[in-house]
Design a protein around this nucleic acid. Structure first.
Length: 428
RNA sequence: GGAGAAGUACCCAAGUGGUGAAGGGGCUCCCCUGCUAAGGGAGUAGGUCUGUAACAGGGCGCGAGGGUUCAAGUCCCUCCUUCUCCGCCA
């Protein structure tokens, strides 16, 4: 949530910043509502003060045997006015809250305006692999190597799913274990959160109210609950409504969860295999920091994600996203994109973002500033570290051999029981 | 799922209708002392409005939201969470 005072004091600046996210807003009605609310609030406070004073006299007058009926009558009439004002104020409050909470986060100043077309690749790692044979695409490879069973997935679940089988399951698990071991080395705390979350959690993350349709909702829970689209949704809420000690910051977490996404109708024909699905595995890195340290934390997260892909030996690039391509809740996002030879494009395997205080305001997540002794909002950052579904296509395609076998990245070998290569199988 | 009990500040906790929400512990600052001590004082949720240079005053605030009342931590209703017992179950 954007700071209401920022909008109040500098509406033009906020309007221009949001324009970079392709978001056109008119604040004039909001500003009027805020002004009106403050005025009513003041009037109401005076009435309440009077009521409190009158009421507190009652026991004293009673003791001395005086008449209290006239006070009762006065307070009753004051209460009528208070009731009216209370209602008007809470209606205005609702309107203001609904308007402001629907606004996206402000983009950082240095971002280019506009959408995808203005994303900039800022770093490239490794080179595109060269094949002296006709390379296969990952769907063929995964099937011939017995890593993925698409047909049976369609049978037991439906479209947009797949089943990791045998060495495919082991490869997937090896990736996750490799990431986990790296995060532990870096001193991040391992979290396994619940996958079913309440509405409030989605609101704090900034998914709701705008993106309610993008997640799966459970039908028979009261109140309604949804299945998390990313571990971020759980991790943002870990410290919801808490005041953290500055000495405990930064707090560094990582979590493994599957990610469940509706994405109905978003399939494209070229996105076969495991490029886009209703469910995929991801390890999420997460930090709560002071505002002063969030840029540093952001660099750390991007570098960590890059190192993981680099460790696998894959060719990839890092893109700085234009304002309009950053997520709704984020001030800044860098994507790590891995090369998929058969598609001839780079596909996102990690997205590192700085939400600054946007999510912290929604979730009331603060820390006690040691120097001023004031409570301030934390900055919150997240980065995939990493999402695995698109790594397997990248690995099998980039590391395939002429005979259809695939070399296992060195860093994964210990997690594959020493296995260094996966060879084609006859179909079972 | 059924029955019962509970939720007060960093922690423990008093408070069943009437002034600023007892008291302790811990922590922070100050004073006194002077070294494995002890004592005294102050502070110890946040949000928000008005004026302001620091600051002062007011409203709200006892799990959340309603209700009764001149007045609610206290009485009533709904919900959430925790604990105990019972049932069911991987």
């Amino acid at each position: 949530m954007i700071d209401i005072n920022l909008i109040k004091n500098n509406p033009q600046k906020v309007k221009e910043a949001l324009k970079k996210k392709n978001w056109d807003t008119d604040f004039s009605e909001l500003l009027q509502q805020i002004k009106m609310k403050n005025k009513l609030q003041q009037d109401n406070d005076l009435l309440k003060e009077e009521r409190n004073k009158l009421s507190s006299q009652v026991p004293i007058i009673k003791k001395s045997g005086g008449d209290v009926e006239s006070i009762f009558a006065k307070v009753k009439s004051i209460n009528k006015n208070i009731e009216i004002l209370d209602k008007e104020i809470s209606e205005l409050d609702d309107k203001i809250f609904q308007f402001v909470s629907a606004l996206p986060n402000l983009p950082d100043d240095d971002l280019l305006p506009g959408g995808k077309e203005n994303n900039q690749a800022i770093r490239t790692f490794g080179n595109k692999p060269f094949f002296d044979f006709k390379p296969k695409n990952h769907v063929e490879l995964c099937e011939s190597l017995g890593l993925i069973d698409y047909e049976r997935a369609a049978k037991i679940s439906g479209k947009g799913t797949w089943i990791y089988t045998n060495e495919g399951a082991r490869l997937e698990w090896a990736l996750l274990n490799y990431f986990i071991s790296e995060h532990l080395k870096d001193g991040y705390t391992f979290i396994l959160p619940p996958h079913i979350l309440n509405y409030e959690s989605g609101f704090v993350a900034g998914q709701f109210p705008k993106f309610k349709e993008d997640v799966f909702w459970l039908e028979n829970t009261q109140p309604q609950k949804f299945i998390l689209p990313t571990a971020e949704t759980a991790l943002v809420n870990f410290h919801r409504n808490e005041i953290l000690s500055q000495d405990d910051l930064p707090k560094k977490y990582f979590a493994y969860t599957p990610c469940y996404r509706c994405e109905a109708g978003s399939y494209r024909t070229e996105e076969r295999g495991m490029i886009r699905g209703y469910q995929f595995n991801k390890i999420e890195m997460f930090q709560y920091t002071t505002p002063e340290n969030s840029d540093l934390a952001f660099e750390e997260l991007v570098t960590k994600a890059e190192k993981l892909v680099e460790g696998l030996g894959l060719h990839f690039q890092t893109s700085k996203l234009a304002a309009g391509d950053c997520s709704h809740s984020m001030a800044r996002t860098y994507d790590i994109e891995v090369w998929i030879p058969s598609m001839g494009i780079y596909k996102e395997v990690s997205s590192a973002s700085n939400a600054r205080d946007y999510q912290a305001r929604r979730g009331n997540i603060r820390f006690k500033d040691k120097t001023t002794n004031k409570t301030r909002f934390c900055h919150i950052l997240n980065a995939s570290g990493l999402a695995t579904a698109r790594l397997i296509p990248a690995i099998v395609e980039q590391f395939q051999n002429k005979d259809g076998s695939v070399n296992i990245p060195k860093v994964l070998v210990p997690f594959m029981g020493g296995q260094t290569i996966i060879k084609p199988k006859s179909k079972q």
